[in-house]
């Protein structure tokens, strides 16, 4: 709307010159996020199933992951540096630890929300415990689990930017550069692309979720019919 001001803030020529770097950082951003959420899920899944089956372990597990979640990211990275240095490992350990609480809470909530009558009927028909978990409980918990994956992904995409401070960062590289050089264009490019990436990732995951849960759509269509 206010063309001169926008023009002053955004240096389009610079943006044009940086397209290659933007591509590189974008790829790194996606990689850091995918690894963090992937590893986070691999760790969270067995813990969540365990906490679901053994209720008394739920509180301690969420307490520990809750503390990890609460520690500011920069502090966590700093505390890791003496052990893992300025490496991708440091970044990933930090990023993964933030996904745990979100993923575990959602997986457990999804499993807990599976209707008792469906489980009873499955047991009564002769499903084994493992069969109930894999072909009844997990498919039915999928929408809530996927919601957790989406939140974890969006949160991680935001947190990746902070890893710029330890030499990684994906698009956070531009944010840091904007801060250091008092150059708003770089910060805006980094922040806007990071938000865009989060929106796109969220949308894609939503599509995956729709594809994996056709029954939910059928019920919804009926509800609105």
């Amino acid at each position: 709307m206010n063309q001169p001001v926008i023009g002053a803030i955004l240096d389009w020529d610079w943006v044009g010159r940086q397209l290659d770097t933007i591509g590189v950082q974008l790829v790194e951003h996606v990689q850091l996020t995918a690894i963090a959420v992937g590893v986070g899920f691999v760790i969270s899944f067995p813990l969540a199933v365990f906490a679901y089956r053994h209720k008394r372990f739920y509180a301690p597990i969420t307490w520990v992951t809750g503390v990890l979640y609460t520690i500011p990211s920069l502090a966590l990275f700093i505390l890791l540096i003496p052990y893992t240095g300025l490496s991708t490992a440091t970044a990933e350990i930090g990023l993964v630890s933030y996904t745990l609480l979100i993923l575990i809470r959602n997986i457990v909530a999804g499993l807990r929300a599976v209707p008792a009558d469906v489980k009873e009927a499955a047991e009564g028909m002769g499903y084994t415990r493992r069969q109930i978990l894999w072909s009844v409980e997990l498919p039915l918990a999928l929408p809530v689990i996927m919601a957790g994956v989406r939140i974890a992904t969006v949160t991680t995409i935001g947190l990746v930017t902070v890893t710029a401070l330890i030499g990684k960062g994906g698009l956070g590289f531009f944010i840091l550069r904007g801060l250091r050089d008092f150059f708003p264009t770089a910060s805006i490019v980094g922040a806007v692309l990071s938000v865009a990436l989060a929106v796109v990732a969220d949308g894609l995951l939503l599509l995956v979720q729709r594809f994996l849960t056709p029954w939910a759509r059928a019920v919804k269509v009926r509800a609105f019919a």
Partner: peptide
């Protein structure tokens, strides 16, 4: 709010 990185907010607000 969920998608916007806090570091990004800082990065934009500070130079501006």
């Amino acid at each position: 709010g969920r998608a916007l990185p806090s570091f990004g907010i800082l990065g934009i607000v500070f130079p501006l």
